[in-house]
Design a protein around this nucleic acid. Structure first.
Lengths: 262, 262
DNA sequence: GCCTAGGTCCCGTTT
DNA sequence: AAACGGGGCCTAGGC
């Protein structure tokens, strides 16, 4: 079988899996196991899973994933940098993945295997684009009226004692405005975060306005916001995206014009 | 091939995969694909991934996972309840997973496939044990000296205006003690949470002690704690676990004695 | 290494 | 269905 491609074996013998592991994982391949296993975890917490049918994926970076039939989240896992060992013990195929600092160990005990597969995945990361909070900030900087007419952003990510302010600037009357941006519905925590920033600034700056900018806000959060004398500004995410895409299109044109290939 | 077990095909034809999908996913099976694909996501955000070698897992609950060679987290995914469609388009194998409310869609376009596998995983959930914040609370209730000698817990989860207090009680001098429990290293947020609870109680109760109980605490959090006049108490998680296991062993014995099979 | 902030967080539980 | 809290959150970026 072409070693650059995948190999797969149905109902493999445990001995063959151990052998396959030695030959493939060392070569930076991914190994996929399907079968009945129990799982024990010890480390930051403890967890113990009775035997059940699961998919186990061992990646070349040391990540280990144990998935059941449902859910996006693995029922158990081990982070990158962990070291995997495979052995046969009491007629079971035992995978033991360990990392130190903090010490963590996962042991999966297979009583039966219906499938093992190995395959090579290129590690080189590919290009990825995303719209996140950072992108919304970009959009507001490009179009400050998204916050309010006359708003002039001064800088982003001003460090204050307690953390980082998303965005701040001056309103049309020259008053300092602190803006907390949220990509999703704002909750009480977002309000408290803004309040904390406000408190740490009013000491030194006197009157400051605080604006929570988000696509929506929970009822409790809105009540708390009013109680604190802060303001809510609805942000249209779709508008942010269209602002960004048109802006990025222009930048690309500029880049091409100047021969910028970065 | 036994339909209850796994089937796997190396370098499958796209047509066969479409056929396999129709026969297996309907039967509550999991499908695993390995190959070169690009990914587009639109929904709560936007993301776009250049073509690269990836593992795609489609679960019977509608979850879709797209994994690359590294990391525990999928590079892209779709939550349970999504609906998967597979078709051939422009000589590519196209997976499209959609959910509504909120609308989200992931499209994976395979230009090549090195492996496809299907397997049946029982869905029935199995027993799972964990040490969480709740378990630590149990341990402290069983052994209050974990907080300090002479500490007497009164009740748990006292509702206050701002939320729930993890634990409270009286110290040896009869003073009210509010305890904030953390399973992991306590950060500034934990301190602020405790402070918030303190504030909402000192109004009505006068002098109250506040204790942050955690296995460790960040430097900044400790500074803030001192600033607020609160106290830190180191919790030994291992000790909590041993207290719980011995306690649960006793309970099991009691249960057996009374014929309790729950 | 520790710490901070964000996430298409996911997920269970409560309202 | 929305909201809230917890997580072995994970991961990326600073320092």
């Amino acid at each position: 079988m072409n070693p650059d491609m995948a190999s797969a074996f149905v109902n493999p013998r445990f001995e063959d899996v151990v052998e396959l592991f030695r030959r493939s994982l060392a070569e930076g391949m991914v190994m996929i196991l399907v079968g009945e296993c129990s799982v024990e975890y010890k480390g930051r917490g403890v967890a113990s899973l009775e035997s059940g049918s699961r998919i186990v994926i061992a990646k070349p970076d040391g990540s280990l994933l144990i998935h059941a039939a449902t859910s996006v989240e693995p029922v158990n896992w081990q982070p990158p940098g962990s070291k995997l060992e495979i052995r046969i013990e009491d007629d079971n195929l035992v995978l033991s993945s360990t990392r130190k600092a903090p010490y963590e160990n996962v042991i999966a005990r297979f009583i039966s295997l219906s499938l093992v597969a190995v395959c090579k995945l290129e590690i080189k990361p590919r290009f990825k684009v995303e719209i996140g909070e950072e992108a919304i900030r970009e959009a507001v900087l490009a179009e400050p009226s998204l916050i309010e007419d006359g708003f002039k952003p001064i800088s982003i990510e001003k460090p204050v004692e307690v953390g980082f302010i998303d965005l701040y600037g001056l309103d049309r009357d020259g008053r300092l405005v602190i803006v907390e941006l949220k990509r999703v519905k704002a909750d009480v925590e977002a309000v408290e975060q803004l309040k904390t920033y406000m408190d740490s600034l009013t000491d030194s700056y006197g009157s400051v306005r605080g604006i929570l900018a988000a696509p929506s806000i929970t009822y409790k959060a809105y009540m708390k916001l009013k109680e604190f004398g802060l303001e809510y500004r609805k942000i249209d995410i779709a508008k942010c995206i269209s602002i960004l895409t048109s802006r990025r299109r222009q930048q690309r044109k500029l880049g091409e014009y100047y021969g910028d290939k970065s």
